[in-house]
Design a protein around this nucleic acid. Structure first.
Lengths: 126, 126
DNA sequence: TCTATATATGAATAATTGTTCATGTGATTT
DNA sequence: AAATCACATGAACAATTATTCATATATAGA
């Protein structure tokens, strides 16, 4: 008959040296937790928002579609740096682009982004 | 009388080697941009969300208040690692805590956090 | 007061990441 | 075709950061 301490006997927790104080809660939360993979993707998404240059780029694109060179000038940074960051934003599907001759115009991919940003801003301004 | 090109004469833009294609847009967006300090804080906030361990901790606290040891067990990580991350979450005012004897219970600080997480989740699941 | 337990924290290390530099690619113009 | 412009990208370097290990602090109980 398994009880709340059985798992400690069978497989000692190497990583947490203290006792589980509330096994019922841990189990309940454990069942509710989304898959690791999903949580990993969520963290990865927020990691993209977690850089000042990228936040500025996103904010800029709230206002208007812009080309790489415009953004570089706006932020006072090299074209290369901006291009690298746009790549990251592209990979996370936060921005999309269209080519017009030699110029590439970037814009926001959808409106979640604005919502996420605004919630973050609200928290910071509180 | 300053004009739109003056700053280029006085202090050449070392960082962006290409021409500004759309000065009107750059100026307009530049005026709308919040202070650097605010955007820096917003990025810093999202940086906190941008780690898998912290995202899991936050998600766990959506479900229930938990003590450090419970969280460590839930995530299969060391107490020390969790404690360090809780410190980060505390500093960003994302979690609060109450002490009950030897145990410290952590919980979410406000509801922005859930909203931010859910928006991120929606984006990822699309 | 002494011991045990839950948590916090400083230092060290390994891994990740943002920018620069140099160069490559695709489109336009002459 | 050659030159030029806008942008992309690989490699390298510096800075940041997550975890571990060792140890410190705070509370409870004997």
């Amino acid at each position: 008959m398994p009880n709340q301490f059985d798992y400690q006997k069978e497989e000692p927790i190497a990583r947490c040296e203290c006792n589980v104080v509330h096994k019922d809660i841990v189990d309940q939360v454990s069942n509710q937790m989304p898959d690791d993979e999903i949580l990993y993707d969520v963290a990865d998404l927020f990691k993209v928002f977690g850089d000042c240059t990228r936040i500025k780029i996103l904010y800029a694109l709230f206002e208007s579609e812009m080309c790489v060179c415009d953004i570089a000038d706006l932020l006072g940074m090299s074209q290369s740096a901006i291009s690298h960051q746009l790549r990251v934003l592209k990979q996370s599907r936060l921005v999309k682009y269209r080519r017009d001759g030699k110029t590439v115009f970037y814009s926001l991919n959808d409106d979640h982004i604005k919502t996420i940003f605004n919630q973050g801003l609200e928290h910071v301004l509180e």
